[in-house]
């Protein structure tokens, strides 16, 4: 597993994100409170535990660059289409301002980061959705970046790893957002036809249009423990069927039990598992 020091081989603007996760830089706290158990633990302990709560084991969402720093070999990270930013194809009221706010808050230009790098010396293509930016929702730019990453992997005959984390479609982009489902799914199918290995890694939360497109089309499907994964949101389902949903419904473990996930992979085993799979297909 990569360490914080390894991450120093990342470019400066990427480094800002690493190790900071959800924290603002100006007030560097010593403690972080877990959103699940409400207990505090030392930030250092959180870091050593890859932002899994040292007390209760709850998974804290992590940023895209930080996740890449955990899996890629030192000095191999190279971002693809890093300058592509969100557009406003429908001229939706207040959307431009909201985007600006999200960019300032997260330092990201969009909800997807795509890159090439090496895992254990094997070159791979990665796309990572970042749930901090507009809930990782699928905008036309997210769809375009993911599609370009898939096409790059197809062209260079490289294994493809996509980490999904998405609230679903980007409402403000309407039909353009919807059509990204067809675009990305078609790109995956072209990648399949060329014989490439696609590992789909589902993280909290993977829902809506992302679940119903590239996230569900992996040769191998992995999931982080306790992640919410589904098409319709739990609230909508409860309102529709007028019943309370069973405990653990739409969580990784539930999906594994119902036949949609190959393995649940703890964050600490993420890199080794990916490496094993890549070597099995090398």
């Amino acid at each position: 597993m990569g360490t914080f020091l390894d991450s120093l081989s990342f470019p400066a603007r990427v480094r800002k994100d690493i190790g900071e996760v959800f924290l603002k830089k100006d007030k560097e706290p010593v403690f972080i409170t877990c959103k699940s158990c409400n207990r505090r633990a030392l930030k250092r302990d959180w870091q050593e535990n890859f932002y899994v709560c040292p007390v209760c084991g709850n998974y804290r969402p992590i940023g895209a660059y930080y996740r890449l720093s955990l899996i890629l070999d030192k000095g191999t990270f190279r971002e693809l289409n890093e300058d592509m930013t969100a557009k406003d194809p429908m001229g939706f009221p207040e959307y431009k301002d909201k985007l600006k706010g999200q960019m300032q808050k997260t330092g990201l230009p969009e909800a997807a980061v795509t890159a090439t790098g090496k895992i254990g010396g094997h070159k791979v293509v990665c796309a990572v959705l970042d749930s901090r930016f507009f809930m990782g929702s699928m905008s036309s730019t997210v769809g375009e970046k993911v599609t370009r990453a898939i096409e790059y992997a197809t062209e260079k005959k490289l294994p493809l790893i996509i980490f999904s984390a998405s609230g679903g479609a980007r409402m403000q982009e309407g039909i353009y957002s919807l059509m990204q489902m067809a675009k990305t799914a078609a790109a995956i199918e072209e990648f399949n036809a060329a014989g490439g290995l696609y590992i789909s890694f589902l993280t909290h939360p993977t829902t809506g249009g992302v679940t119903a497109s590239f996230a569900s089309l992996g040769d191998i499907t992995l999931a982080e423990p306790g992640a919410l994964i589904g098409f319709a949101g739990p609230r909508v389902i409860e309102q529709t069927i007028h019943k309370k949903l069973p405990k653990g419904f739409q969580r990784s473990e539930y999906l594994e039990a119902h036949g949609f996930v190959d393995r649940i992979v703890p964050r600490s085993e993420m890199r080794d598992t990916l490496l094993q799979l890549i070597e099995l297909h090398a």
């Binding site: 489902m181 067809a182 799914a185 078609a186 995956i188 199918e189 399949n192 679940t211 119903a212 497109s213 590239f214 996230a215 569900s216 089309l217 589904g230 098409f231 319709a232 949609f260």
Partner: peptide, 10 residues
């Protein structure tokens, strides 16, 4: 549901 829709698109 997600898998079924995704598969049709693909």
């Amino acid at each position: 549901q997600g898998e079924a829709i995704a598969m049709n698109l693909a």
